[in-house]
């Protein structure tokens, strides 16, 4: 009887990816500001704002139904990769070949996680095992 309500989502929606991108961007801004704050102490305000905003966006990601393992893995890894790239651009820090390989591996990992979670979502949607009600199973 509650068919019109939003179904219990188990994985990503386009909006959850938007929030995740914002969570990553704000976290990277916070990390980079932390590095810059050594020379310019006013940047500490950006540090605080960036990290708090990042957590707000991360909780919105979870609210949208993305799993904590997937969300946290992508958030953390993209933050590391993006911070390395931005540190090179902003602070002239070098990226060694090994770090470059690491960034490529992170991107491959994130894509693999997303592929896997999409497949898991399809499987759950088409699988009666995860739908506890047997009579109203017509929504899949």
């Amino acid at each position: 009887m509650t068919e019109a309500q939003a179904p219990e989502r188990i994985s990503s929606t386009p909006r959850s990816w938007l929030y995740l991108a914002l969570a990553i961007t704000t976290e990277v801004s916070g990390s980079l500001s932390l590095r810059g704050a050594i020379d310019a102490p006013w940047l500490y305000s950006i540090v605080a704002f960036g990290f708090v905003a990042s957590f707000v966006f991360l909780s919105l990601v979870l609210k949208e139904g993305m799993g904590i393992g997937v969300a946290y893995g992508i958030w953390g890894a993209c933050g590391v990769a993006l911070t390395a790239v931005m540190s090179m651009l902003l602070f002239g820090e070098s990226i060694t070949p090994l770090m470059g390989i690491g960034i490529v591996v992170i991107i491959a990992g994130v894509l693999t996680i997303e592929l896997g979670s999409q497949a898991a979502e399809r499987k759950a949607a088409g699988h009666p095992k995860t739908a506890p009600s047997t009579r109203e199973g017509a929504d899949s």
Partner: peptide, 29 residues
């Protein structure tokens, strides 16, 4: 939390971990 987790997702997590280690430890190498 009984989150869905397939071996493909597990592979992705392992790749991400490996990548993070490479980026962070590769700085001095």
């Amino acid at each position: 939390f009984k989150e869905p987790f397939t071996w493909v997702m597990g592979l992705g997590i392992v790749l991400v971990m490996l990548g993070v280690l490479l980026v962070e430890m590769g700085a001095g190498l």
